[in-house]
Design a binder for these strands. Structure first.
Lengths: 237, 237
DNA sequence: AAGTGGTCTAGACCACTAT
DNA sequence: TAGTGGTCTAGACCACTTC
């Protein structure tokens, strides 16, 4: 069972995403929400704080809470969103090709990226993402085998993310992401339709579990003309 | 006066950044912190929640709160960080050249970006960022004149951001950022040392005040080989 | 069984915005 | 002056980890 405040948060999120609550609408006051949902003020405030943090509303002292319209056109690589979710949201014709799937021993580079000791086993998954018939994105995933004992073709062709969360019950807590632009490699040429581009956008992603253990390193290589990243950032307090 | 929880947050942040609290150290429990700082549990929890949200610690149920080492090598364009803060942090030799400073009437493009009506006044500031003698970044700032009546050469050569916050008392609340890669323009050629590069990383930034009014649009154009963006993202609950 | 963080409640006072 | 969100307190119960 989800917590009360998370249930309330989700109800309001879906009202905003459905358009039942339009942007710049004023939400009921905290006191009114207490009565509506029959909970304490603290519970309401937890829900509103979440909404604010995730860019759905803005609270203004003395005035109230107002719906923002930031989330309108967000095809983003942001947060922890996976490719599958992205392509569903933008409903372009997309397709995943599994290029490589094997267990390897960690080399020096991976030992550094995944914080491993020598010769530990690592899943290596290479997938090519096709959008409207063009091979646009190259995803290289490396997963610590300690956490994931089995990985099949089916899983990789669907969503590894969903498998980890739903079937294995792994709880992803946070991720660190780095975006740079680099010269293309032979591997990029082999797998992607570069159409003359000589540079590639590299998104490195380090994924951590709830106990702060680093278990996945992903390198997502995007053709520059098709790359877009959207981010919502609040001040740090 | 800052709030209690924010003071406690800042104390712990500086201990982590000074290295007085090393990574994977366990913080005192919430009960102990209550006694140390002589506050209620809720106040401690607010401080810890902030620390967790900003990537300094990880809380683990039943175990405790642990210091993360995510912030080690972060030369990033992340959050609301300004160029001045960035260059100070990375202490490379950097320099700002003010190329243009004027008041213009909003054209169609700006009306859209800044949510203005026709013919409203807008500050246009173009600055070139030099790093180690090379002109690497082109910053184009557009500020709604309604909020900023005066802007001088000195201010632009230092930090507009500091001027807005400290002198004008404008409170920046959140920002939306978009990163794409585009073909260079004549303007890029004119102002930057492109060294053969034909593409440029474009960071569009929409900055909002505490009352959710959009007051600044910034386009930051980075030479691709010198661009790096680092982001820390927690799950959305 | 003892200690930890997670949720929820009820009540108080404050600073800001509207009127 | 009334209503709003922001901070702080004190106490309760829960689920999880460790012993």
């Amino acid at each position: 069972m989800d917590s009360k405040y998370f249930t309330i948060y989700n109800e309001i999120v879906s009202k905003i995403e459905n358009g039942k609550l339009e942007s710049s609408t004023k939400l009921p006051s905290e006191n009114e929400l207490m009565e509506i949902y029959n909970v304490s003020r603290d519970t309401i405030r937890k829900a509103l704080t979440l909404l604010e943090r995730n860019g759905y509303i803005q609270k203004i002292k003395g005035k109230g809470s107002f719906v923002l319209d930031i989330h309108k056109f967000d095809f983003s690589v942001s947060g922890l969103t996976s490719f599958k979710e992205l392509s569903e949201r933008m409903d372009a014709k997309s397709n995943t090709i599994l290029a490589e799937l094997e267990v390897i021993k960690a080399d020096d580079y991976l030992m550094k990226q995944l914080d491993l000791s020598k010769d530990e086993d690592v899943w290596k998954v290479i997938r090519v993402r096709e959008i409207e018939g063009k091979r646009i994105i190259l995803d290289k995933d490396f997963l610590n085998k300690k956490f994931v004992s089995l990985l099949t073709r089916e899983i990789c062709e669907n969503s590894i993310y969903e498998y980890l969360e739903n079937d294995l019950g792994l709880k992803i807590s946070f991720a660190k992401k780095e975006i740079t632009v680099q010269q293309i490699t032979e591997e990029d040429k082999k797998y992607l339709d570069l159409e003359g581009h000589t540079m590639i956008v590299v998104v490195k992603n380090y994924t951590y579990l709830e106990d702060a253990s680093l278990f996945q390193y992903t390198e997502s290589r995007h053709r520059p003309d098709k790359f877009r990243f959207v981010d919502f950032a609040r001040r740090k307090h």
